[in-house]
Design a protein around this nucleic acid. Structure first.
Lengths: 149, 149
DNA sequence: ATATAAATGAAAAGCATTTTCAATAAAAGA
DNA sequence: TCTTTTATTGAAAATGCTTTTCATTTATAT
């Protein structure tokens, strides 16, 4: 678990950007957080540890991480961007539960392959894709009607 | 091409809602518009024909159409909701060109099937899904670097 | 140490979406 | 047709997240 910092270092260096203790702390917390955090989530986590770090800095740091490829920005269509870091889990799709809001990460290689083929059939050169399947998760099904956790 | 109005009529009726000339005009324009319009797009189209219809009414009408299933709200992650009407083309995925912004509607039954299976494998009860493949379209590939249309 | 340019944080601005509210108008009944 | 009831409308304001501004601070190079 050192590579992630190197990636950021290289990126900062190559762009003439600087190391700051704020960035270090934000990155530490982000990388140690399992997964999909909104800016607000992350700001709260950071704020708990360091009251002097502002929302704006978290925002800018996340953009930095996204730009250098350490973070992935995801959008479930609820008007809030979420971020997930890219270590351990490479590409994956999401099963999003409409009841409890939780999501499961999944991959099915055959689907990946077919997507590539589908793109090719249309002369399309794919660079990325996003698949969200919405529904009700196992837990919420067995719990019947309501619930929120 | 009469069924779409019936759907709306039924919906309005079942909910005790009313027919208004504003709704009629907005629905007419929306249904005659081939495809993916933002609220702003649609408002402009409506405004051209009737200066008295406000943005809010367009907004509310589109929510109505989405609720009664005539319209599909789509989100390409650029912070703007778009709407497409559901006649002619049922469910489909999107190939989104990152260069010219155009999108192609596609379906591959095998992918659909595999998605269902994938969900099932996780005890997940799927209700909808969204697949966007991002990349460069045929046209933009052959045109080389720049371009916007 | 000093200079210089990036980074920070608070506050303000942007922007699409959503709500508020007084005025208007559709549907139903008299 | 006239009234009544209640949904609808449109302008403006509010929301909520994201992004920018700007004066100040601070990391690096000299």
């Amino acid at each position: 678990m050192r590579k992630e910092y190197e990636v950021l270092d290289d990126f900062l260096h190559s762009k003439g950007l600087r190391h700051t203790h704020q960035r270090k702390k934000i990155v530490d917390i982000f990388l140690s957080t399992e997964k999909h955090v909104s800016l607000d989530d992350l700001f709260k986590l950071v704020h708990k540890e360091d009251r002097t770090i502002g929302y704006t800095t978290v925002y800018r740091t996340m953009r930095l991480l996204t730009d250098c490829g350490l973070s992935n920005e995801i959008d479930f269509g609820d008007g809030v961007s979420r971020f997930e870091h890219k270590f351990g889990h490479e590409h994956h799709d999401h099963l999003v539960c409409m009841k409890c809001g939780r999501f499961i990460e999944v991959v099915k290689q055959k689907i990946e392959d077919l997507q590539g083929r589908l793109a090719k059939e249309h002369g399309f050169l794919p660079t990325a894709h996003r698949l969200h399947i919405f529904g009700i998760c196992k837990r919420c099904q067995s719990r019947g009607a309501s619930s929120k956790g």
